[in-house]
Design a protein around this nucleic acid. Structure first.
Lengths: 207, 207
DNA sequence: TGCCTGATTGACACTCAGTGCCAGATCGGC
DNA sequence: GCCGATCTGGCACTGAGTGTCAATCAGGCA
């Protein structure tokens, strides 16, 4: 039952996020203390930590949630599709709305320029990797318990890294170029279209 | 002149590293405070921070130094070589000696299991990327100021990611397989040998 | 309506990382 | 032996994050 308790909790969660993001974007991430956030949101310092483990999680909280969406998108891909194509297709489903493009650009820049945020963002991406690897292993026909088989890990990590690179270039370019295009360019630089599908389960007729 | 001042400094630096690493590996990274390290090394708490910016830097201090070695190795690669091959070759020159394999395994595991260490390790790798990208851009013939060209960034980030994946697999496998082999396997999974050299400056005779 | 249980909250105290400041010691050159 | 530069230790401070405890409040039950 998600009655008053959890509804209140969600409301407070959203309120903290809104308040904190506004402070971050105006006076900067490091210059905003948790006392500032708590005071502005009308809660106690201690309560803040009951909603967010760290200050960084306020900014990157949605990231881990979208990791699960990507996993679902990956599993929904056609069964015969090779792992690389499926992975790229699934990553295309990352649409962090909830913010307009200009705000998104500010947030990206902030994450990019703040070491602790940058690091935590990458940690989240590592969690994505753990989420996606099993399905890729399955598609590659790899033994799930074989620690020597690095193919799936390499593929997943690479594609996510391409997304990172694209995001970085997107901020550098001031959001002038669609993120998708940059992602595609990064992916194509790593594995040109001329490449035949990497490791495939088999039985596939070429084409 | 690197006379007494810097010689003493280097000696103290090494002493702190040795002492701290011993504490880390016995009682754990998080369970070791900087006061512990300072006391064991016979210096003041304040002086510790004159040698290391953070506690993590004691463990990962050599990493940033090897970044420069990789850059040199990359620049020393044959001029005609395609960027991908040159990058992989340069990465092979990462040999963190100074520790035996068993100690190395413990350190890897510690870094892997400690979030703050993991994060900082990734930050260092980002610094590697910034170091290596210019040379790769040069090899690709990219405009140094063009923020839209993501090829070099994608290539560098991918190869470094492969090294990460290999390192992770190496710890999972208990160091049973040479790190180089795992790295090669990861690289080959991303871009099979059947691929033709990605983006090349040109004029190269095939071979 | 009144009570009980469980989850939430705020307040206080605490540890620890990291920084700024200042006085004293120490080395190198003169 | 003196002087400037550098290193050192000690002190105080901010800020993140945690443990604890009493007070509060929703919901179920008689």
């Amino acid at each position: 039952m998600s009655s008053l308790w959890s509804r209140t909790r969600n409301a407070v969660y959203g309120e903290i996020t809104r308040t904190a993001m506004e402070l971050f974007l105006t006076r900067g991430f490091d210059a905003t203390t948790i006392d500032d956030i708590a005071a502005a949101a009308g809660i106690s310092r201690r309560s803040f930590f009951r909603y967010f483990g760290t200050k960084e999680d306020v900014v990157l909280g949605d990231l881990i949630a979208s990791g699960d969406l990507i996993r679902q998108a990956l599993e929904a891909r056609p069964a015969g599709e090779d792992a690389w194509t499926a992975l790229c297709g699934a990553l295309h489903s990352v649409k962090d709305s909830a913010y307009d493009d200009e705000t998104m650009l500010k947030i990206f820049r902030m994450v990019h320029e703040t070491p602790s945020l940058r690091a935590r963002s990458i940690e989240k991406h590592l969690q994505w990797q753990a989420l996606l690897t099993p399905e890729v292993r399955r598609r590659l026909g790899a033994d799930p318990a074989d620690p020597w088989d690095v193919r799936a890990d390499a593929l997943v990590a690479t594609v996510i890294t391409c997304l990172d690179v694209a995001g970085e270039a997107w901020t550098r370019a001031g959001g002038q170029v669609p993120l998708e295009d940059l992602f595609d360019a990064a992916v194509d630089a790593v594995r040109p279209a001329s490449c035949e599908p990497a490791a495939e389960i088999s039985t596939g007729d070429p084409g």
